[in-house]
Design a protein around this nucleic acid. Structure first.
Lengths: 131, 131
DNA sequence: AGGCGAATGATAATCATTCTCATTATATTC
DNA sequence: GAATATAATGAGAATGATTATCATTCGCCT
């Protein structure tokens, strides 16, 4: 599902481009240091652009180790198995909800743009430790 | 899936009890003001207890409007449709991932305790506004 | 070119969360 | 039961992400 189309300013476009170049979700601060050298953008502007893009369907998804929000363009969306003990995340190669979302959609008055799905538990090594 | 069993202190048990009484996910701060009057617990202790419970399978799930984490006991887990524009959340009455998780489980060396699933998009009224 | 509203950047303010450290409770050993 | 080790607690400081403020600048329209 593409973003809702809007006219973007140069900075907002730069933020979107920056996100599109990432293989993984990235934090606002990381995006800031990336773009600051590339074109001298302010931190507040990065946050504002992300908020605007969020309202247009950009995924604000996973919460990083230190509690920050991570952002990713919708088509890069990816789901994870995350270990409660060591915090490591293992990406899932297939999204089991895609079809479900498509089925769900027509039956309700809510326009779905994207979803987040994350499994939590214990990875093999940590599971051994805990026993 | 029940929490991994452990011996809990009085305060930790109080935090778990407090969560169990909630119908919806709740923030650490809310839990704190709830428990403070009930038994004079410190804010740091609430956070520490939540961290301990999290490692045992308590769901730290949705991110509230102001960016805080919300917590809920696993068996209350609940999924949402959240509107990107007005922020309102609409609970789903059925979890479409439950069976999938059960199928997924045996094929991998990862012990799943719970999952989070949230759909984002536009609710009917907001969708009209945006058009 | 002039004017207007939105966007920007620097920085201060806010707010959730974590850290520090002295104190207290709990468990263990004798 | 007393002595001691270990973990838990609370108050408040510190941190770090995010948001608000406000003066300045930009983009667009006439």
């Amino acid at each position: 599902m593409p973003l809702i189309p809007v006219r973007l300013t140069r900075n907002q476009q730069a933020v979107l481009d920056g996100l599109n170049q990432q293989a993984h979700p990235i934090s606002a601060q990381e995006l800031y240091s990336l773009l600051r050298e590339r074109q001298g953008i302010g931190l507040a502007t990065v946050y504002r652009a992300l908020e605007i893009l969020r309202l247009r369907g950009l995924a604000q998804s996973r919460v990083g180790a230190s509690g920050e929000s991570l952002y990713s363009p919708v088509d890069h969306d990816q789901h994870y198995l995350t270990c409660l003990h060591c915090g490591q995340s293992f990406p899932l190669d297939h999204c089991p909800v895609q079809e479900l979302a498509a089925q769900l959609q027509p039956s309700m008055s809510f326009k779905i743009y994207y979803h987040t799905l994350e499994f939590f538990g214990l990875c093999e090594p940590c599971n051994q430790l805990i026993e």
